[in-house]
């Protein structure tokens, strides 16, 4: 086999996945188009896939898209930051202190099964329909993800490393936490944070459907007037922003965990 043959084969192998992926997307759009043409969904509730670019231009020109994205990002960043910090802190405490673990485990069992959206009622009562209310609901979902990931990550740190820390002058609580617990639990903690990044989006849209300004509210408003094309535009915007945030987080995660084989 010649060198050019093997190069072509390698190139074909590398292109196979993205090409097949594009074929999959095209197949989905075709199916969507067929569903639209043959009205598989109730009339007027499924937009023509080829009308989506026009709907995007329309939302942009009417100055709906960017303010909605900006508003959602405010809830997202605040909710994500507060939920992540608290979840990480309480999870770390729960795994590091048996007293605190005993003190809070029953409360955690009671609160954990309550879905974040069930808190919307209190969010509205306490914060009214505001950024803070949406951020509150988001932070609850993110809190639990980070709480469990951190607690499990810390509990799984090899205890032999603590003996090492003690043998080499790192026996104090702070030195143990910074030199052993946090780096040792980092893979679990970062996985939890990454899951939280996705969880925050899911809760965010649901919280906004109840009236807090943002993409969820715009989707609700557009659906109310039968503009399902606009709904799809916001759905795609959510997908794009999530992919970007997840991609950025994965870069940070890979950088921090570059010590792993």
């Amino acid at each position: 086999m010649s060198t050019s043959d093997s190069r072509q084969r390698r190139l074909a192998g590398r292109l196979r996945r993205p090409l097949l992926g594009l074929v999959g997307v095209a197949a989905f759009i075709l199916l969507w188009k067929l569903a639209y043409m043959f009205t598989w969904a109730p009339r007027g509730t499924l937009p023509d896939p080829f009308s989506i670019p026009a709907a995007l231009v329309n939302e942009w020109r009417n100055n709906h898209l960017l303010p909605a994205v900006g508003s959602s990002l405010i809830h997202y960043v605040w909710g994500l930051a507060v939920g992540t910090l608290l979840g990480f802190g309480v999870g770390l405490l729960a795994a590091s202190s048996s007293w605190f673990d005993d003190f809070h485990y029953m409360l955690a069992r009671v609160l954990r099964p309550i879905p974040p959206l069930a808190w919307v009622v209190f969010a509205i009562a306490w914060f009214h329909v505001s950024h803070a209310g949406a951020a509150f609901v988001i932070s609850i979902g993110v809190f639990w993800v980070n709480y469990f990931a951190t607690a499990a990550g810390v509990a799984n740190v090899d205890p032999r490393y603590y003996e090492l820390a003690q043998a080499f002058g790192h026996g104090s609580f702070i030195k143990r936490v910074t030199s052993i617990t946090l780096p040792g639990a980092a893979p679990g903690i970062l996985s939890g944070m990454r899951t939280g990044v996705g969880q925050a989006w899911m809760t965010l849209i649901a919280a906004e459907l109840l009236g807090v300004p943002g993409m969820g509210q715009q989707m609700n408003a557009a659906a109310g007037v039968g503009a399902y094309g606009a709904v799809v535009v916001y759905m795609l915007a959510i997908s794009l922003i999530y992919s970007i945030s997840d991609g950025l987080f994965s870069l940070v995660q890979n950088r921090l965990l570059r010590w792993r084989p």
Binding site: Y161, F168, G169, H170, S179, I180, P183, A186, W259
Partner: peptide, 17 residues
């Protein structure tokens, strides 16, 4: 410690001296 390079592992006990 797998998260420290060899140099940093060697210097682990020097903190506090």
């Amino acid at each position: 410690l797998p998260w420290r390079r060899v140099r940093a592992n060697v210097g682990y006990g020097l903190t506090g001296l």
